[in-house]
């Protein structure tokens, strides 16, 4: 088959140009450190990178949210532990007051301290966080949970739990509403026909204070048993809180290892293997040099040179 002169030149220059193109691409890869320069070079890979990035971001976001919740739980924990200490003091005072050898005036002194402690408890139950939202009112964040009317305290919040997306599938749920943490007590009053009655947290405390002020030994003994129950309820919440915080820590570490895995895989997909790229580029440069020099040589061959 004949090769026309025009074709010969065109063809040769094309080869050189192609070699240059390949070198430019390799150079771009080396300078950015990524296999992919434009998404359109390898759309599949580009989209895969996209998906991995968004998975990583999503896991990080869940981790941030878990941290936020943990902070909230920590504030609740502080408030409840302080309440537990107050209740401990309450129990001591009640034991003191149940001592028969005490004079009524002594009991009145005890009652005064008890009133103080009750005020502390109420304040703790109505604790607010740094944004001004109540910790123990369920989801009604700007409604004060424990409201005192005519000397009696009632719970007016709700019990809606906060749910968060978990690391894997599903949701985690946290409920520490005032009516559970500062929970009611069931009083089996033998005097009123064995009817079990439900008594609120602060009503128990108030009844006890009244009993101490009035030196009523039966009611004081009853108050002692009930104070125990209040103490236990608070402790139970504390234990649950601890478990929840542990749970969060576990979830966080699951997320961290997942993210690590994802990042590794992502790097494998999008990062450049420098060794391979450098050797490739060397090869390509060699090829271009060869193309150029062979063109230079063969283009000089012409019959006209040999005609005198």
């Amino acid at each position: 088959m004949r090769i026309s002169t025009a074709y010969f030149y065109d063809h040769s220059t094309q080869q050189v140009v192609q070699a240059q193109k390949r070198i430019t691409e390799s150079q771009a890869q080396l300078s950015t450190g990524k296999k992919l320069i434009n998404p359109s070079d390898e759309p599949d890979r580009a989209l895969l990178v996209d998906r991995f990035r968004s998975s990583i971001e999503r896991q990080e976001a869940v981790k941030t949210n878990l941290n936020t919740q943990d902070r909230r739980l920590s504030s609740q924990e502080t408030a409840i532990s302080s309440s537990v200490e107050v209740m401990l003091r309450f129990k001591e005072l009640t034991v003191q007051a149940s001592n028969d050898s005490l004079a009524p005036s002594d009991r009145e002194a005890i009652a005064i301290e008890m009133i103080n402690l009750r005020a502390q408890l109420l304040e703790l139950a109505n604790t607010r966080d740094d944004l001004g939202h109540y910790l123990f009112s369920g989801a009604s964040a700007t409604t004060e949970p424990f409201v005192e009317t005519n000397g009696s305290v009632a719970y007016v919040g709700d019990q809606t739990s906060t749910r968060l997306t978990a690391a894997q599938k599903g949701h985690l749920s946290f409920t520490y509403s005032g009516s559970e943490v500062f929970g009611r007590v069931i009083r089996n009053d033998t005097s009123t026909q064995n009817q079990a009655q439900s008594v609120g947290f602060f009503d128990v405390v108030d009844d006890l204070i009244t009993a101490v002020q009035g030196s009523q030994p039966d009611d004081i003994r009853r108050g002692l048993a009930e104070t125990d129950q209040l103490f236990n309820t608070l402790n139970l919440s504390l234990v649950q809180l601890g478990a929840d915080r542990n749970n969060i820590t576990q979830e966080t570490s699951i997320i961290e290892s997942t993210v690590l895995n994802l990042r590794n895989t992502l790097s494998g997909i999008e990062d450049l293997d420098y060794a391979e790229a450098v050797s490739r580029m060397n090869r390509e440069m060699l090829a271009m040099e060869a193309a150029m020099s062979s063109f230079a040589k063969s283009s000089q061959l012409s019959l006209f040179n040999y005609m005198r």
Partner: peptide
């Protein structure tokens, strides 16, 4: 293109 050049192209040596 090669075929065309082969048929109709000018080869200086030729």
């Amino acid at each position: 293109l090669q075929m065309r050049e082969s048929a109709a192209g000018v080869n200086l040596d030729e």
